[in-house]
Design a protein around this nucleic acid. Sequence first.
DNA 1: CCAATTATTTGAACGCGTTCAAAAAAGGAA
DNA 2: TTCCTTTTTTGAACGCGTTCAAATAATTGG
Lengths: 235, 235
Amino acid sequence: MTTQPRTEKGQQTQAKLLATALECFATDGYKASSMRAIASNAGVSLSHAYYYFKSKEEIVAQLLLNLRREQYDFCAGMLAEGNTLEANIRAVLDTGVEALAPYHDFGPAFLRLMLARDMGNDEISSIELEIWEKVVSGSRPLPPLGIRRDLPKFLLLVSRQIFSAWAFDQSPQQRRSRLLMKNMAPVAAKFAVLCRLPVVRSLFEDVLALMDPGPAGIDEVAMADPSPLRRPKAS
Amino acid sequence: MTTQPRTEKGQQTQAKLLATALECFATDGYKASSMRAIASNAGVSLSHAYYYFKSKEEIVAQLLLNLRREQYDFCAGMLAEGNTLEANIRAVLDTGVEALAPYHDFGPAFLRLMLARDMGNDEISSIELEIWEKVVSGSRPLPPLGIRRDLPKFLLLVSRQIFSAWAFDQSPQQRRSRLLMKNMAPVAAKFAVLCRLPVVRSLFEDVLALMDPGPAGIDEVAMADPSPLRRPKAS
DNA sequence: CCAATTATTTGAACGCGTTCAAAAAAGGAA
DNA sequence: TTCCTTTTTTGAACGCGTTCAAATAATTGG
């Protein structure tokens, strides 16, 4: 949200907007739910919706953030019980997809925002990372020391890809990607061992490098969407 | 294109629109290049641009298709020389990123379209698949018979992920993702062997299942963006 | 209490992608 | 030529996400 509500009525208005947006998305899908319709259904003017949310996408981001927070609270207990790494991975994938399931049919444009954010900077990413850290640190036996530190980041990245596949999965009940999740857990757990092989290990590190911020943090400004730099030959 | 030009002047107009769009994208980025600006610079009216391209995205798709065609012609020779699987993979990844490099700075919105298409149906996907089939069938020694048939599909999927990482890579010269490509080739080649392990093999098959079309092809119609189905609880 | 500051709310506007009915131009058959 | 069909081209409009200056309401300090 662009402006945090500073009065109680403000918070009510913001909450009402969020709830109304959710209704609209559920009824008409993401794209067909216009800001005008959301604002109108919430009983406020169009421009006022932009007082609390600086864009339509930010409404989505807020909804997804709430979802992750719920999942975090729900998972925290299970991950501290000393189960295997594989079991912990499954637990997070399962609860994650359960939380997101109602949003699946909001349309591709909705869930595309899950993947599109520049990783690692925003609040939702840090919550996800915390979850995966608990997955690793709470597992028994602990994974090899060499990758224990970086494994959470890696699992975050892999889970993003899986949820992306799930988001676009059109098979009934997302059967395909759910199967993928089920089989992903044991493979990821065994991957920890494979990381002893130099080839796999170097790949592991390159994948991780993708998550780090750009050159000294200068690029956050420069990566705004209109970015004219080079000019290719016509084809 | 929504309408194929049926006269010579029509083809000229369409080509002029494509070339002008490319210029605009290179100068101002994708988002900042409005259809009005493109049409105006091409010397036609706004609505006329929609006679040959049914959307702005379709202009991008056409540019990318031309690019893949060039890459296909360029690669075909190298892939028939009987090099190793690893070498062939590298060749395709390298020529692919070389072809796409000038488009990298058009903005994230531009290259997002590469990943967003529903895989396997459109013309650009079938060209990509043809390339990966040549990668496999032209490699010596040939990969194990058990996965030889499905390996091209798998490589297509993996390469999509890699190019997606590259598209969003903000490190200078996309250093990170290029390194990832370099290390990907030997791992993918060795992966063929690992597929003998049942765990890896089942994952391989689930990943492949993601690429097949939905239930009996009915869903292509139903997956249009406004898709209201369920209604989640408010949060 | 009144004024000053801050928070909320609005209406009007802008540029965008896209659509559509209809005008203009081109081609072919008589 | 004239008429008819097909192809190309246009101008005007619609709804969208977003912005902004200005109006209203709430809060605070004297």
